[in-house]
């Protein structure tokens, strides 16, 4: 469980987040939603320990994220950021292999190699393994970076808009994969994901944390948060809803 304890973030003179207090449960997928500029990515980066809050603290499984040793944190949290520009000339396999680095620190074991193979297979990258990352298309690149984060095999996985570059098939595959990973049980992994596609959130997320203007707008089980009246206030536009066999879909009116 992640406890976000009255966290604020200021960058120079601009307040980005104000007094965020929320909890992210360990099992299930938690979707971070909200309008542009609400502070979703900033909160994700804070939870991952990539930036330090101006006030408050974030406790992950009982330990302050910003007090963990770097290596220790990398074994507990894997992050997929939006920035996927790569200036280095690395092959896809090299890149994914670096996901194992927190575990072996430069001396890979068989287990590490197996996990890399598994990640390549899972994200349909086996054929692309020897290719240079810079020669890939946007969607292929996104898959390579996601595979790298996956290969880190951490109890927590944070993804910042992982669906943006993916086609419908890979988007569904990824969400299904995250869904399986995060089912309750001893092996359950916590997933925190920033999504813009509300229907992906509606279909797959177990919990939703909605941010608006740098504060918490709503938090709770997906079915409770993703209602047309609440979404309408959140995005300042009307929402309609359609019930389907797979679940509830929402659309802006």
């Amino acid at each position: 469980m992640i406890e976000i304890d009255d966290v604020s973030l200021r960058v120079r003179d601009t307040g980005i987040l104000h007094g965020i207090a929320a909890q992210v449960p360990r099992d299930g997928i938690t979707a971070l939603i909200g309008p542009n500029g609400a502070g979703k990515s900033s909160l994700l980066h804070l939870c991952a320990g990539l930036t330090t809050p101006s006030a408050g603290r974030i406790v992950l499984d009982g330990e302050d994220v910003h007090r963990m040793a770097h290596r220790d944190r990398a074994r507990r949290i894997a992050v997929l950021t939006q920035a996927q520009a790569l200036t280095s000339r690395l092959t896809v396999k090299d890149l994914v292999s670096f996901g194992r680095w927190p575990h072996h620190q430069g001396r890979p074991r068989d287990e590490d190699r197996q996990i890399v193979e598994e990640a390549l297979r899972l994200f349909d990258l086996l054929g692309l393994a020897p290719r240079q990352v810079e020669t890939l298309s946007g969607g292929q690149k996104a898959r390579a970076f996601t595979a790298m984060a996956w290969a880190q095999s951490t109890p927590w996985l944070f993804l910042d808009e992982p669906l943006a570059a993916l086609d419908p098939r890979f988007a569904r595959d990824l969400m299904a994969q995250l869904h399986v990973m995060s089912r309750p049980g001893p092996e359950a992994r916590g997933v925190l994901i920033v999504v813009h596609d509300l229907n992906a959130a509606a279909l797959w997320a177990d919990h939703v944390l909605a941010l608006k203007d740098g504060g918490v707008f709503a938090a709770g089980p997906a079915a409770e948060v993703m209602t047309p009246p609440r979404l309408s206030t959140l995005f300042d536009t009307g929402f309609g809803v359609v019930e389907t066999k797979r679940g509830r879909l929402v659309y802006p009116e």
Binding site: L50, H70, R71, A74, A78, S88, F98, W101, P102, Q152
Partner: peptide, 21 residues
Amino acid sequence: LADRITILGLGADAARSLGLD
């Protein structure tokens, strides 16, 4: 330091999330 320097090339965020100081 070879591995670490390669990881630097992935960018600050990526390097941090791989546990590099």
